[in-house]
Amino acid sequence: MTRQLDDDGRLRHLLTIAGLPAALLTEILDTAESFLPETGPPVKKVPLLRGATVVNLFFEASTRTRTTFELAAKRLSADVLNMQVEHSSKTKGEHDLDTLFTLQAMGADVFVVRHPDNGAAAGFAEQVAPGVAVLNAGDGSHAHPTQALLDMLTIRRHKPDFSGLTVAIVGDVRHSRVAHSDIDALHALGAREIRVIAPPPLMPAEPGNLGVRTHDRLAEGLAGVDVVIALRIQHERMQRTLDITPEDYRRDFGLTAENLQALPADALIMHPGPINRGVEIDADIAYGPRSVILEQVRNGIAVRMAVMAMIAGGRHRV
């Protein structure tokens, strides 16, 4: 795999959480904290990336990730180009790498890449010029590192001692890049226990290799947890793979008032979005007093600011 760190152990790309040391993850979270005031949105403007060009190169649709990366880059004073691939020469048959090389020739310094194929971001990182960074904004079912970092920041701001935490991830863990990155981050930061709760077809293929405990009953899996992360359920997969209706999934695995009776009163409720209301989580739970879902969105701006500042800030500091 393309090296994420330079010879001094600093970030040069961010492609996956796997293999990153806890000290570096903590440095990213600490840097993100510096962009977060006690109340309100992250800081409005700093000059750390003045003169840099950040390209959001999204081959898949996105709301939260793309817009928070855009806001983060602009708050670092970078120039930002949002590449709408569906309106690009890709529709005429242009290869993804030719798109990358063309934008690089225009002076791009950072590529934020979302792609449907596992490993696509790492493949791009192998091709960019020295000094150009690639940030993985989600590749297939492989990884979503900044989502994991914003999840860890959100948890840490409420429950700072990871060594005492039990975290449950509910839903389609097998196909979830968010779950894979969250599991890597939780292990690196020393979480006491990670649980996966899902119907058997959505369990990871080899959960033992991930270091997680599996549960196929929601109440059993939620007992005693400190944090529960619900994952988006893809409606198209429920009929084809699960042989279960959305109604049945909500009854057995949805975060509803009835199903959360086993959840401790001080547990955090999280979701990476977008939410399927009334399937994996009910609206009154998603926006209720234990939910930190909107905090996740806010913290995502700060985390993405931190990553870009740490990778590219030194090259463009005025």
Rank of each mutant, 00 (worst) to 15 (best):
F69Y: 06
V112C: 00
D30G: 09
R50Y: 03
S163H: 15
T26V: 15
E295M: 09
T99C: 09
I281H: 05
Q127K: 11
H95P: 06
R177W: 04
L165N: 11
L150Y: 03
G164C: 12
A188E: 13
A309L: 06
P272D: 06
L48M: 06
E206C: 02
T102K: 01
N136P: 01
D282M: 08
R12Q: 15
L81H: 04
E126Q: 07
G313E: 04
H175M: 13
S88T: 07
R317F: 03
G208H: 06
V46L: 08
L49V: 04
G19M: 11
A137L: 02
D226R: 09
V297I: 15
T166H: 12
I233E: 13
S163F: 06
R10L: 11
Q239K: 15
E236L: 13
F69R: 00
T26A: 15
L268Y: 13
A108P: 08
R114N: 07
F162N: 11
G40T: 12
N259T: 03
V134G: 02
H235I: 15
S77Q: 03
T68Q: 00
T154I: 08
N299Q: 05
I197N: 02
T102G: 11
A191Q: 09
A188K: 04
D172N: 10
L97Q: 07
V132N: 04
I301E: 07
L260H: 07
D79V: 05
V132M: 07
A143S: 15
G314S: 10
A302H: 06
A198F: 02
L268C: 12
S77A: 12
R66D: 03
E206K: 01
L5H: 12
E236Q: 15
R75E: 04
Y287Q: 13
S181R: 10
R251C: 01
T91C: 12
M310P: 10
A137T: 10
V55L: 05
L189M: 14
F35S: 05
A78N: 08
A262W: 01
E33W: 02
V46C: 00
E33Q: 14
I183W: 10
V228A: 14
P41V: 09
L150A: 01
H158L: 07
L25K: 14
G288A: 13
G221R: 02
M305V: 00
E60M: 00
P160T: 10
V212S: 01
R232L: 09
A191P: 09
K74V: 01
V170I: 13
L202M: 14
Q104R: 07
A22E: 15
D98G: 06
K92Y: 09
I197S: 07
Q261A: 10
